Amino acid sequence: MQGWPIARAGQRIGLLGGSFDPAHAGHVHLTQQALVRFGLDRVWWLVSPGNPLKRHGPAPLADRIAAARFEMQHPRVVVTGLEAELQTRFTAATLRKLLARYPGVRFTWLMGADNLTQFDQWQDWRWIMNHVPVGVLARPNDHLSARLSMAARVYRAARLPDHQSHGLAAAQAPAWCFVNMPMKKESSSAIRAAASGDDVTAGSLPVTNKGR
Rank of each mutant, 00 (worst) to 15 (best):
S188W: 06
P5G: 01
L53D: 14
N130M: 07
Q33V: 08
H24I: 10
S48A: 15
D41Y: 05
A7K: 11
G10E: 06
D63P: 09
R101N: 06
L144C: 07
L168C: 12
V77L: 03
N115Q: 14
W122H: 12
V79C: 02
Q121L: 11
D120K: 11
S145G: 05
P5D: 01
H24W: 12
V36P: 00
L168K: 09
G203P: 10
V179F: 00
T117Q: 06
A195G: 12
L15G: 00
R37P: 09
Q87V: 05
H56V: 06
F90Q: 02
L116Q: 03
V79F: 01
S196P: 07
H166T: 00
F107E: 02
N141S: 15
P174V: 04
S189W: 00
F20N: 04
H56S: 12
E83P: 09
R101M: 10
W109H: 08
H166C: 00
D142N: 12
V78K: 02
E186C: 01
Y102T: 02
G26F: 05
R89W: 12
V28I: 12
G10T: 01
M181P: 01
H56L: 11
A138R: 11
S48K: 06
G10Q: 03
S165G: 11
G203I: 10
G203R: 15
D142H: 14
L148C: 04
Q33S: 09
M1P: 02
I65V: 12
L137S: 12
A34E: 02
A92Y: 13
A190I: 09
A7F: 11
W127L: 10
K210C: 15
T91W: 01
A193Y: 11
S204G: 13
L160E: 08
T108H: 01
T208W: 04
A68H: 05
H143I: 15
G17Q: 03
D199V: 15
G112Y: 04
V79G: 00
P133H: 02
H131S: 10
A23V: 01
N141L: 15
R126I: 07
V134F: 08
S204N: 13
M150F: 14
R12D: 03
K54L: 09
C177Y: 00
S189Y: 01
R96P: 10
G81L: 02
I65A: 03
L35E: 08
R126L: 08
M72P: 01
L30K: 03
T88L: 11
A93R: 10
